[in-house]
Structures are given as structure tokens and as C-alpha cells.
Amino acid sequence: MSFTVNLRNVTLKYGAEAALADVDLDLEAGKIYGLLGRNGAGKTSLLSLLAAFRRPTSGEVRVGGEPVWENAPIVSRVALIREGGDFDDSETVKAVIETGQIRPSFDTDYAYKLADKFEVPLKKRVSALSRGKRSVLAAVCGLAARAELTMFDEVHLGMDAPTRDAFYKELLAEYMERPHTVVLSTHLIDEVANYLEEVIIVDRGRILRHADIEAFQGMGATLTGPADAVDALGLAALAEQRLGGTKSITVADALDKSVRERAAAAGIEIGPVGLQDLFIHLTDPNRNGA
């Protein structure tokens, strides 16, 4: 059984400042979600509420259909892995893994297997680990938690590219073997885009967009062709690249039929927009009507 998530009118304030304001959000069970947002947008605050790390100032947070706050049967099956993990630095890697056994679902053998695969030495103290290895240890504990709702908050920071790739593959393999709800909060958008089923964009404490990945990709387009022909279309570009006489532009709006026909006639190829480019556009502070 994997967990659904429901937030109703949720506000979280730090003092007088609202990190989240009147948030409504519903996540179906058993999907992989991407949580995107600029720095300070409210991603970590949102995840902290889902894991009962914090209590909302007002509103209701339900996980698996039940209030999550101080609900042992629920929080024991929710894992939020923050960057660098929440460890006692004086402990060894082995002791940190054993601490995970607080969760009845924790798979210790799997954790040891992952530690071996990612070359995290069991006898080393956490304080002696590099930033990358510490991130890997956090990821290992998150995967081995075998939780029904697993959230990774920038857990990749410090990992090198091959390690990140191996982590994503392991995450996917674990998900395929045991479908559960996964939320990935990251700034490496294009790197995880292929793994996501739905995307939530948080901006200035509110949910800006929440849709499946295809909907996001259908929101814009990438046009590649002769530079003059691309320019002649007169489209507002989010991003552009030029190589010799070839130009590629990204636009945020879906193309209407006449533009598509003109583009095709001019030998311009039309492809889906990159999620990162779209994200940059949607969260542009100078953009109106987000």
C-alpha cells in the first residue's frame, strides 16, 4: 500500500513570514513526483509538513488518508531524506543504518547491500565521510526505509554524476519492485525529468502548477531549423541556442496550427520543451499571470 497526500488550506509561518500560504495539494498513491521551485520557494517547508517534521500554522495535512501529525502508524512509513541526512555525526555508518531499524519496514540487508554497492565504509564515522558519501548514506537510508511515502530533498548534493545516475536507477528499480509514492525535490531538473510522472512547481509559498509530465511538455515547444526561418516565425523565446546557421529556440506556449504549418514549410523541426526551460520561464519573477 502506498500513501496518498492531501493538503487543505495549509499555511506555515516562520514568525510573521509565511513559507507556505493556503496550499491545497492532492497526490495520488504510487507515483513519482518532481517537486520544483526556486530557492526559498517553500519546497522544503512543504516536505517538512508531509513528514511531520513541522506542524502547519493552519490547515490540514493528511497522508494515507489520516492526519500525519503524531500518527505513529503513518510517520513510521514516511521517509523524508534531507540533504546530508539527519545523523549523529559521532556514530559510525553501521550504527546509522541500524538506527533505521526503528521503522518496522526498514530493510537492513538491503541497506548493507546498497552501502557496499555505493562504497560507503560501514566502520567509518559519519563525521569522517565526504559530502558526497554522506549524501549517499542518506540516500541509502531513504531507500532501505521501504516507506510508503519517500521524499528526497536535494539529497543528490555532493554526489558525482555517476553516483547520481546509479542512485536514480536504484530508486527506479526499488519503485518498480515495490510501487510507492516518491517525491524528488531537486534543482537538477533535466536530470530527473525522465523519471517523473507528475510535476509540482512551488513558487513563493504557493503551488504554481501541478500536472503530469506530458502536460508540462505539451505546454511549450522547441523549434530547431535555419536561423532566419526560426526568427521569421516571430515567437517569444524562453531560451535559444545557435550553432552556425542553425538556431534552436524554446517557447513556453503551445503552437497553433498555422505556426506549425509555417514551421514545417520552412524546414523547422518541432520538439517538446525541456522541463528546466519551462520551469525557468514559469518562475520568472518578472513574469505576470503565473
Binding site: A52, G85, D86, T99
Partner: peptide, 9 residues
């Protein structure tokens, strides 16, 4: 922090 992050209330 360690215990709450590990799923304890």
C-alpha cells in the same frame, strides 16, 4: 532530529 527523521513521533 535523528529519531523524528527516522519515523518516531
Amino acid at each position: 532530529p535523528n529519531m523524528i527523521a527516522a519515523g518516531l513521533t
